[in-house]
Design a protein around this nucleic acid. Structure first.
Lengths: 202, 202
DNA sequence: GAATTAATAAAACGAACGTTCAATTAATTC
DNA sequence: GAATTAATTGAACGTTCGTTTTATTAATTC
């Protein structure tokens, strides 16, 4: 057999990406074989190579997609110039809220992006790290503005930014939708902790 | 050739553990081959199997060792009964300080224990998770005591414990000894952030 | 409806993997 | 110093891996 009836490149690529996220999140990138992935998609292994030239480029594409969506998500959520939320506290609240909700909605992609960086070549690793740094610099700017305005109490902006990122990303490690807390409650809780952490709980 | 002059089982096992931690931390468990590990130790692959029956049992042994040392470290650091540090705030300060210093001193082992849980069988995974839960319950007890005594402001003890653990363990992701901050400064910084986070910065 | 392009299957490649087994030598015991 | 035990080598096993090549069929173009 060869081309199958109803086959469509776009659908196949989307199916590959989705199946890869699920498999890598569960097994790890190195532990997932291209044969396993192909079976999950319902296709022969060779077909994968029409969409991604190597296994590593597939991983890179997944990570880039995740980071670009994250950056775009913040771009849409951030308070507009002149809005009454455009204060350091308002921006920080929006940042934390958006971050929590974005990551809870994309658990698999988050696990992949956080746990599989080691499997990238240096060049591709640097690309993903640059995107990550771009996102984190938004948080640093908020913290620095609040510090300058005297509304945040922060010893070290860079260190505090890393601490907050680690704390709020960590939600996906323990949160399960079936547990006692709702997504809203979790987001509110992390928001409160973050505000206290930067000394803005007046 | 066979047994080499000066060969010693204890030394070889220690060398295997150390090399394995370094290689797994750098490459990931699945990406590290037993041949690579043997080469690093300076031994033939078959020799590894005298000390660890399978690759997975080697990983499990490394993780168990790490968790048991962590628990023992807190056991020694915790404020004694009746000491003037035996308050919720004093115990929390000691917990954070000890956690930061322990993990900074064992970066490789920490990466292995945090990133490679997926490669354990269910049984061995449960064992490691039980040790982890045992350690985390110490933090939850401190938070609950402080909440009960009215010296901590905490919405949800379990959630706050997870957030603090994620935040303070995350130090190993970004901290490099050659950077501008000393280990003391970093520990003090995380201590301050933790205290503010639980509303105990009076 | 013929020609072209897109999408896939089927089979195979060499390399690397975890692990086992038998042989061999160093160190220890008595 | 002979017998025993501890430590390791060298070679091999079957399996699985990522990837490539070639052939084949569906969809599209003209």
């Amino acid at each position: 057999m060869a081309r199958t009836t109803g086959s469509d490149g776009e659908k196949t690529e989307a199916a590959i990406r989705e199946a890869a996220l699920a498999l890598i999140a569960r097994l790890g990138f190195e532990a997932m074989s291209m044969r396993q992935l192909a079976a999950q998609v319902g296709v022969q292994p060779a077909a994968l190579y029409r969409y991604f030239p190597t296994k590593e480029e597939l991983l890179h594409a997944l990570m880039r997609d995740h980071m670009e969506h994250l950056i775009a998500s913040w771009g849409e959520a951030r308070p507009a110039y002149g809005s009454n939320q455009e204060t350091p506290a308002g921006r920080l609240a929006t940042f934390v809220e958006n971050h929590i909700r974005f990551h809870l909605a994309r658990r698999d992609a988050t696990h992949v992006s956080n746990l599989e960086l080691r499997s990238l070549s240096e060049e591709r690793l640097n690309h993903i790290l640059a995107l990550r740094s771009q996102y984190e610099s938004e948080l640093r700017a908020i913290l620095a503005d609040g510090q300058r305005a005297g509304v945040f109490r922060i010893d070290d902006v860079a260190l505090t930014a890393m601490a907050i990122i680690q704390m709020i990303t960590g939600v996906i490690v323990w949160f399960r939708p079936e547990l006692r807390l709702s997504e809203d409650e979790v987001a509110a809780n992390y928001h409160n902790m973050t505000m206290r952490l930067v000394g803005a709980d007046a």
